[in-house]
Design a protein around this nucleic acid. Structure first.
Lengths: 409, 409
DNA sequence: AGGGTTTCCGGGAAAGTGT
DNA sequence: ACACTTTCCCGGAAACCCT
């Protein structure tokens, strides 16, 4: 608790003042003490509630900053101090960081409506906060972009700043703190790509860094962890991704279908592979596809996934190999490769002569599944008998059956 | 062409000036002439393109005012004159009218963005206009409303105003003109009711009136004409409403099922009956229902209506009487009474014993018909044979058949 | 509690912009 | 021509407001 540190400071100050026996040392000691105090005070000004890291213009959002030492150092403020929130570019953030937050901002990169809020000490909780509700970014001024950079790769931040005068010492001090990096969008169709930028940044940036540099390529292992955590967080499940899933994802993102799982271990994956390059023969990037899966699973398949009824991340070819050796009507579920946010059923038809043919049903989208849920659709399809490897479908999906046909236009 | 009048004025002025033989009369004559000029000039400032009479906040709209005498009287304007557009309440409009447009506006009842536009003379067309594109009403300040009045009954207007200095005489003059009355809405769900207010006002207001008074009740005959004109304009058809339709509508709006068509002729219908009172047992007013029919017909039934295949405005009871005397499979189309914007098929089933039963199919909405059109739906239904009175359905609807079953998820 | 009124905002459609 | 980016705006949902 940093308030204790302040107490230590004041005790030290007293001691130094008392120590008037060595007058030529005193000024230097005091100066040093003041520096320490200033740095301590500045670092106790924090963003308690971050603004959304994907921020849409013309859409209200919330944020909250807290001055930990406020209750101690602003005891009898004559008029309430006001905290400003301003949009700053990555470049501006970097300059601020370089100046050790001693510069002040010249101009912001986007107008925030209702961007000043009083810094108030709540007497009951003893916290000193400025609570931004109903803040709204009206318009964003984009930076110069070089080459293939898209606006959803551009990071900016909200700078919270205020001037306060500390009560006992009467020292005036300029407090500033940056939010986490933010990607500003103007329409929902940019949400995907903005999320990719934020995910990459959050996962792979060093804690101490020049804002907002981040590696351009990272070990595939780390990417796997990130995707796994994201999947579990987004879908709200405790069942994470498995080794075979990672293998499939590696094949997809590296577009390499000959390497072994071990080969992928040591590989590096680039930002371009993650969300710039179009997957061969598809109209979307790896992340756009993966995010589609996240969305579909979150919305319609959470319980199925958590019951491990969805193999999901597996290639059509491999499914074909697996199923062709199984009895008639064996099926499994995989995410569509060709369609964003689709899940498809693969099943085997085995002739009396022992010949086998693997069929893939036209993928279901979240919209389809909101009309009739997956369980019911599986029940409807007579050609499906056993979930791979060998679970009778009624046993596997029985608890997900919802309604007989009828009802629902 | 009022420019001629100006010429007459200038000639008169010259003559009067020349007529210095009677010096004591001169000042009075001149004064009178100036009055005439002023009134002439003022009345040549017109709204060429009216703003929408149902105006939604936060939605761009256009308008255009024209100063007919501009090209004649503003020949060498030093700097361009600017026309303002301001929202005024009905009360303010009335006060302006009373002052004969000599007052100036103190405050508007809603902020219009980009509300000043230059009054420019187009050299090629020789017109002097101020063209408001990209105007937008940001917010509306509602008036005090008494009792049961709804915001969609509130009329306001746009006041266009400017100050110009006439070139030859160097007289400065304040030009003002009001738009037609406007109902301001904030959401599409108010559109219905706003349209009712506007329709009533446009149809039943006197040309000369205090803004914006209008009768509270009007002869049913006039209402019929109005509904008919509205129907034809909205649906874009040359086939209007028929006597029997009016009779049915009268029964509905007056909630009187015993009166004869002649009885209704002389009746008065009130605004309340038109769009305030809820139809008994329904959740909507007469106009809301009628507007639903307009919308449905415009969007999905235009050609059917124009081919007179839709009886439409007819009561369930009367249909029952008609059909019960017809052979099996005789059907007709009527607008649903219970559902806004629905069309239903009534048909007769006749048993071998001669007994007959009239059935009504669940009404189709515009959404239903956009999925599969009415013609196809009639084709699908095997129990339908002949359109009342006696046209084989393939003959009546054949040209409206569109697709066999299949296609379309 | 319920209807009238307004705000919020997702997402389709179209316009604008750069290449 | 095309893809990226933004604006416009409909209409569902929720909040707000007034009984």
């Amino acid at each position: 608790r940093c308030e204790n540190l302040v107490e230590v400071y004041f005790q030290l100050q007293k001691q130094v003042m008392a120590m008037s026996t060595e007058p030529e040392l005193l000024p230097r000691l005091l100066e040093r003490l003041n520096e320490v105090l200033s740095s301590l005070v500045k670092s106790s000004f924090l963003v308690e509630k971050q603004p959304p890291q994907v921020l849409k213009t013309q859409t209200k959002f919330q944020a909250n900053v807290r001055f930990l030492l406020g209750p101690r150092l602003l005891k009898a403020a004559p008029k309430p101090y006001v905290v400003r929130a301003d949009m700053v570019t990555e470049k501006q953030a970097r300059e601020l960081e370089l100046s050790n937050y001693n510069n002040t901002l010249s101009e912001s990169t986007g107008e925030i409506v209702h961007n000043t809020v009083a810094l108030e000490t709540n007497p009951t909780s003893g916290t000193c906060c400025a609570n931004f509700k109903n803040v709204l970014l009206k318009k964003i001024k984009r930076c110069e972009r070089k080459g293939s950079e898209s606006v959803t790769e551009e990071k900016c931040a909200v700078l919270f700043s205020t001037n306060v005068t500390l009560t006992p010492s009467n020292v005036s001090i300029h407090l500033q703190v940056l939010s986490l990096p933010i990607v500003v969008i103007v329409h929902g169709n940019q949400d995907n790509n903005a999320k990719a930028t934020v995910l990459w940044d959050n996962a792979f940036s060093d804690i101490e860094r020049v804002p907002f540099v981040v590696a351009d390529r990272v070990p595939w292992d780390k990417m796997c962890d990130t995707l796994n955590l994201k999947f579990m967080a987004e879908v709200q499940t405790t069942k994470g991704l498995l080794k075979e899933h990672y293998f499939f994802l590696a094949q997809k993102i590296f577009n390499d279908h000959s390497a072994s799982p071990e080969d992928f271990q040591g590989r590096q994956v680039s930002w371009a592979q993650f969300n710039k390059e179009i997957l061969p023969g598809r109209g979307f990037t790896f992340w756009q596809w993966f995010d589609g899966v996240l969305d579909l699973t979150k919305r319609c398949l959470k319980s199925y996934w958590s019951d491990r009824l969805i193999m999901g991340f597996i290639s059509k070819q491999y499914v074909c190999k697996l199923l062709s050796m199984e009895p008639d009507g064996t099926f499994l579920l995989r995410f569509s490769d060709s369609e964003i946010g689709g899940v498809t059923i693969a099943y085997v038809i085995r002739g009396k002569d022992g010949s086998s043919q693997v069929e893939n049903i036209q993928p279901f989208s979240a919209k389809d599944l909101s009309i009739r849920c997956l369980g019911d659709r599986i029940r409807d399809l007579g050609q499906l008998r056993n979930l791979y490897p060998n679970i009778p479908k009624d046993q596997a999906f029985g608890s997900h059956y919802n309604s007989e046909w009828g009802g629902l236009g």
